[in-house]
């Protein structure tokens, strides 16, 4: 094999390796979606959580959820503190006034769009609707973080560190490492 072939093979391998570096990709701005422009719901404190009201229709969100992005997950961790999700769900999602997020019980589903809906629309018995309170992009980041707390993050994006020091966990990961996920048997 000539040196030239070796060189091109190495260059191709390097290019492919670099092209795969989207784990940390930072999407700093997103296209505004029409759903974002719907009128805001009343303030969280005035809302009967979970009750149907104006602005609680199905979101038209077109932004694709990228489960393989570690940065979005780290942003979600920061926002989990900033928007005081920790106030009810506990630091690291251990639970408190609200249900724990780090266990394997999902009252309203563990799919990204189900969690998105939970945050946006609220759920009965206390979960307020954050529609109009939190921009949709940030809700998706929260979705990524919430899923990571119970080991649902994609293995390649499993949090190894926090990107922002404003996060709740120290630099080292104290969340469960992502394992190939198997749904627990429904309890009788």
């Amino acid at each position: 094999m000539s040196a030239r072939i070796v060189f091109f093979a190495a260059a191709l391998a390097a290019a492919l390796a670099l092209a795969a570096c989207d784990r940390e990709e930072r999407k700093l701005s997103h296209e505004a979606t029409p759903a974002d422009l719907t009128p805001a719901t009343p303030r969280v404190g005035e809302l009967q959580p979970g009750a149907p009201g104006p602005g609680l229709e199905e979101t038209q969100n077109t932004r694709s959820f990228d489960p393989g992005n570690a940065w979005e997950m780290a942003q979600g961790e920061r926002l989990f503190g900033w928007y005081n999700c920790a106030g009810c769900h506990g630091r690291n999602g251990g639970g408190g006034m609200g249900p724990a997020l780090s266990d394997e019980r999902w009252l309203y589903g563990d799919k990204p769009d189900q969690i998105f809906k939970t945050i946006m629309e609220g759920r009965p018995n206390g979960m307020p609707s954050f529609k109009g309170r939190i921009p949709e992009d940030q809700v998706w980041q929260l979705v990524a973080y919430v899923r990571s707390m119970s080991g649902l993050a994609a293995t390649n994006a499993a949090p190894s560190r926090s990107d922002s020091t404003g996060g709740l966990t120290p630099a080292e990961n104290d969340r469960p490492t992502a394992q190939p996920y198997t749904k627990p048997e429904p309890k009788p």
Binding site: R26, L28, S29, H30, A32, T33, D36
Partner: peptide, 16 residues
């Protein structure tokens, strides 16, 4: 568009 003027800052784009 806060992210174009100051990329990476913590102010989100709120569509208006």
């Amino acid at each position: 568009d806060p992210q174009t003027l100051k990329p990476g800052n913590n102010m989100p784009l709120v569509p208006l």
